[in-house]
Amino acid sequence: MTITGKLVLRTKCVVLGNSGAGKSAIVQMFHSDGAQYPKTYAMTIHCDVCVKVVNIPDTNVSVELFIHDLAGYDAFQEYWPRYLDGATSFLLVYDVTNVESFKATSKWLHLVQKARGAKDKDAIGPGVLVATKIDQTLRRAITTKQGEELAKALGLMYFECSAAGNTDVDAPFYYVSSAFYDLYEENLKNVRRIAGVPDEQPATSLALDKLKPRQQSGDSL
């Protein structure tokens, strides 16, 4: 693959969960590569948006995450469906020291499912369950086992992290990015099937296919 062969995928990634669960803390730590931990609490108003590029290892693919850090405070609930519209991945967040936030995860997932619409189950793409504040060992109310069981019941991957301790904050975002790339490849397979193109092409013919159109389009673009 040449330099021009770089593939950029884009996903709207919504981060949701109860107010105070630590959504903004993990988003800001991930976005700043661990440099910006919000030491004081600032309630998110409506929705904060930031973009972060994740390179998929051993490929020429990068995923641009358009992270939508949703306000979890109830006053904004009439806006939640609007912010979820067009989302193609999500992080469902709860706080391990707060039982209410753990219980509320099913409510949040229901919101995601509603935005998906009944027809297309995969419309919102990959999602993960993220447990935050694991550095608070003494105050911890929800165990890893409970979290894993919930994730299994909801059909999501389980991650736990601490923004304050800068522990494993990146992992759920990396997982979502890589799962989104898998979704793209899967979609590509499906489109090839509809178009009646053989799926597995030998590597040599693939390389040739790539050379041919580039020569043609060189002067026209």
Binding site: F180, Y184, A195, S220
Partner: peptide, 22 residues
């Protein structure tokens, strides 16, 4: 680049251009 834009105007439905998200 594996599915270049000219695939839309080559008169062939086997080749295609695909969006990459959003």
């Amino acid at each position: 680049t594996s599915h270049p834009v000219d695939n839309m105007i080559d008169g062939n439905t086997k080749s295609f251009w695909m969006t990459t998200g959003l």
